[in-house]
Nucleic acid binder design. Structure first.
Lengths: 105, 105
DNA sequence: CGTACATATCGAAGATTGTCTATATGTTAA
DNA sequence: TTAACATATAGACAATCTTCGATATGTACG
């Protein structure tokens, strides 16, 4: 996933609040609307569609409701991409203990 | 640094191109303008000021010129913050080999 | 079927952002 | 001090984004 698209997807306060709500949690749209408290349902649907397009959420329909949860693996992959691109020195191999250097008895 | 501010700061194609140019490199504004090729100097200055406000670049004046370079440590810290906030399961302690488990001979 | 409920889409208003030209500010050297 | 150069700021414009109310679509149940 393109790092500009990822950044744009998470570059909004409301969207990040939604992401926190969906972290380790399956919530339907109405639940998210309730927990945010100050954002209307179409707005939440809109943000969810942006997160869905960026593949940052999992989706599951259950009857009338659609449940969402955060795709932590995707977030981790994107953050890793940012690190490699913009902080290579902090992830250089020399900062890692090679497996071969660990005596396994 | 606030994760929304960080995301906004890097949520632009031109800005990310500038960040790549400044990664491991001190360049003055004119250099950046030249290497981008399709962006005017005031635009570059504008983007640099956004990166500076977000503390994502180091700055050094040398005579008439102002040199910039990417603050990799800040980027790494912000990415770490994103990981903790939005991908906690991928950075859980259980995914790390505790130092005490590594026999040091 | 028709009703009720959940979610998505549409269209518009207002805010924010990216880019430009023009110009101001800062720095060096003649 | 003045000229030349480097960078920053101001103001304008277009594009994009966030939000909303209204409404369409999808689903379950009498």
């Amino acid at each position: 996933m393109n790092s500009v698209l990822f950044a744009k997807a998470i570059a909004d306060e409301t969207r990040q609040k939604i992401m926190v709500l969906l972290c380790c949690n399956w919530l339907c749209v109405t639940d998210v609307v309730e927990r945010l408290g100050d954002v209307r349902q179409p707005t939440v649907s809109h943000h969810l569609s942006i997160l869905r397009d960026a593949e940052l959420v999992h989706t599951r329909r259950e009857g009338k409701q659609v449940f969402y949860s955060l795709n932590q693996q995707a977030v981790a992959t994107c953050c890793g991409g940012l690190l490699v691109k913009f902080a290579p020195d902090t992830v250089a191999e020399s900062n890692v203990i090679p497996l071969t250097d660990i005596p396994l008895n």
